[in-house]
Simulated scan of single mutants.
Amino acid sequence: MTLQIDAVDRKLLRALQEDSRKSVQVLGEGVGLSASACHRRLKALEEQGLIEGYRAVLNAGKLGYSMQFFIEVGLTSQSETALEAFETAVQDIPEVLECHLMAGQSDYILRVVCQDHDDFERLHRRLSARLPGVARIHSNMSIRTVKARTGLPV
């Protein structure tokens, strides 16, 4: 269900996606609102669930994660129990940044980060051995990120 938002809400959401550290005063000025009106709109957008949270975007390379992989995972079964077991287990692997249930050749695609080749080998073994119901794994290494966007087009 898409919620109805106006042009000012859209400007406010775009501004937040660019830099959520701006003060309510600065955000309001940027969209033509007083600080109190901006604060009320932000609270309403949060209550409607349009704003789920605020996060810092970290530099993976500077934190030692120089490698990124997209890993396709096929399971031995697509039963609800098998899917739930896999999804629960993948939550406990911090290197897995994203996990998507897919329609197509693979059951899941994971986006993972690793520090080096040895780190990737350890992660690959962990995925193969510890995740329930894994039948096959196919890994693709990202050479370079061409476009990365955390925001949505609003």
Rank of each mutant, 00 (worst) to 15 (best):
D118H: 09
T76Q: 10
A135Y: 10
R126C: 01
R125A: 05
Q4P: 11
R111H: 04
M141H: 12
R125G: 09
I137P: 06
R126N: 08
F86D: 06
E87F: 02
K62C: 14
E18P: 02
L13T: 07
L27Q: 12
L123E: 11
C38Y: 03
D6S: 10
L152E: 14
P153N: 12
S23N: 06
H100V: 07
H100T: 09
L45H: 01
D107P: 00
L16D: 05
R21D: 14
L97N: 08
V90N: 01
G104V: 02
L16Y: 13
S139K: 03
P94K: 12
E72H: 05
S36F: 02
D9G: 07
E29Q: 15
S66P: 00
I109Q: 11
L13S: 08
I51T: 07
R21W: 10
H117D: 14
L123M: 01
R125W: 03
E52Q: 10
D19G: 07
I137C: 14
H100C: 02
I109F: 11
A60L: 14
D118R: 14
G74V: 06
R136H: 06
P132T: 05
M1R: 03
A85R: 11
S106N: 09
A103L: 07
R149E: 11
T150M: 02
P94V: 05
A60V: 03
S34W: 02
S20L: 06
L131Y: 09
L127A: 05
P153R: 11
A129W: 03
G61A: 11
N140P: 01
R144L: 09
I5Q: 04
V31C: 03
L110W: 07
F70P: 00
T150P: 01
V24W: 11
R14D: 15
F86G: 01
S79N: 01
M102I: 08
A56V: 08
S34D: 11
G32V: 01
Y108L: 09
S23P: 09
D119A: 10
R40V: 10
E52Y: 00
G64P: 03
E80V: 02
D9M: 03
S142K: 02
G53T: 06
Q78W: 00
L152S: 10
M102T: 15
K43E: 11
V90M: 02
H124E: 15
I143G: 07
A15G: 04
L63C: 14
D9E: 04
L33W: 13
S142C: 15
S139P: 12
G30D: 15
V73S: 04
A85V: 00
E95I: 04
L123W: 13
R149S: 15
L97Y: 11
T150L: 13
L12C: 05
V134G: 12
P132Y: 06
L110F: 10
H39M: 04
R125C: 09
L50A: 09
Y54H: 09
K62Y: 02
P153Q: 10
S139H: 06
S106D: 13
C38G: 09
S77N: 15
V90A: 15
L13K: 08
L123H: 03
V26S: 09
Q91R: 15
R125V: 06
A15N: 05
R41I: 08
M141V: 07
L45P: 05
Y54Q: 02
L97G: 05
E87S: 13
P153H: 07
Q17N: 13
Q115V: 10
L12K: 08
D107T: 03
